[in-house]
Design a protein around this nucleic acid. Structure first.
Lengths: 187, 187
DNA sequence: CGCATAAAGCTAATATCATTAGCCTTGAAC
DNA sequence: GTTCAAGGCTAATGATATTAGCTTTATGCG
């Protein structure tokens, strides 16, 4: 290794994620990331082909962290199937609350070039499908998974975007919504 | 009116929306909007204070169009409450499919300064709440509305973002999800 | 020990943006 | 006909992503 690097792909991703979480994506520039790392903007191109590629890597990392959180939640498995789904749903929401801007960035459509890797997404999906399948049977489980994901993601995104303006207990609204959906599924 | 204007706030919004729908927000610049209108970029500042303000106007228009579509769907009201909810849900999704990028832009968290007007959003919410209330009763209707909105929005956004990669009939998955949720609500 | 090398940083330059300042044109009102 | 303000314009600024090409330096080989 000639010339010891002051930086790695990983540290760049971490720094970028931290800046996104602190200041929002809008104000994220390569110059800012570089400054935070003690280098200059063009040096970042040694590690990523473009800003899009960097953001894609950030989103991939976010997805992997989310998967890890869900796997952990699934491990401390509760009794009934419904309980297990609820535990997953709350773990999902907790993750989004812990990393709101990173989460929103990864799952907003804006820049297709920055979307997280499809393979990682598939892994995420399978985590959940395994928990839904016992309720619906294998055949309907893909559709059931999609509905659950839609409900959970939609709630979390609308919540993070501040679209639930009219007060009320959002945690209990979330819980009831997931309960209602699961109840409706198992009928 | 000294000097007849070649352009109005409305034509700017329409042009911007069309460009967004055609090329995506990423490539939308004031210069491009201006060129499409036969004027130069700085002239746009006669009509909007900033690009953010213009995007906010675009998003407001999108929200109003969505509300109009939902009102129309509610007018051709079906028999049962569940049918009416389903009609609304399909109208919502059809709107998002007809204007995918505009819809995604209006309801992604990215730039808070560009979010549609809260008052318009409240009007949107009330449209739907009126249809949900008969099923849940007034007390639970706000939470029920939020769950339904989350489910519908989440499904549509994930779909538009291309996150449902594994094939299958998305329309029927959507229908089953809404059915399941409504079934679960009314219990 | 000295030297070549390639990696990892750098500076400088370009094109594109949003935005601002200030000028010019023109139609309407008196 | 003169005024005037709206609606357009050009020119300039500062930020941005990106590219080209230079400089530095640890390492490995002689």
């Amino acid at each position: 290794m000639p010339y010891p690097s002051q930086v790695t792909g990983t540290t760049i991703i971490e720094t970028a994620t931290a800046l996104i979480e602190r200041d929002g994506v809008e104000s994220l520039s390569l110059a800012r990331i570089a400054t935070a790392l003690g280098i200059r903007a063009p040096s970042l191109y040694r590690y990523f082909d473009s800003k899009s590629a960097l953001l894609q890597a950030v989103n991939l990392q976010t997805t992997q962290d989310l998967i890890a959180a869900l796997i952990e939640a699934a491990a401390s498995s509760s009794q009934t199937h419904a309980d297990r789904i609820m535990a997953l749903a709350h773990a999902y929401r907790a993750f989004a609350h812990a990393h709101p801007r990173a989460y929103a960035l990864a799952y907003s459509m804006t820049d297709p070039a920055a979307q997280p890797d499809p393979a990682a997404l598939a892994a995420l999906a399978q985590q959940v499908q395994a928990v839904v399948a016992p309720i619906t049977g294998e055949a309907a489980s893909l559709a059931a998974l999609r509905g659950l994901w839609a409900l959970v993601h939609g709630f979390v995104i609308l919540e993070l975007a501040g679209q639930f303006q009219r007060g009320g207990d959002l945690t209990s609204a979330y819980t009831s919504a997931v309960e209602a959906y699961v109840r409706g599924l198992s009928e």
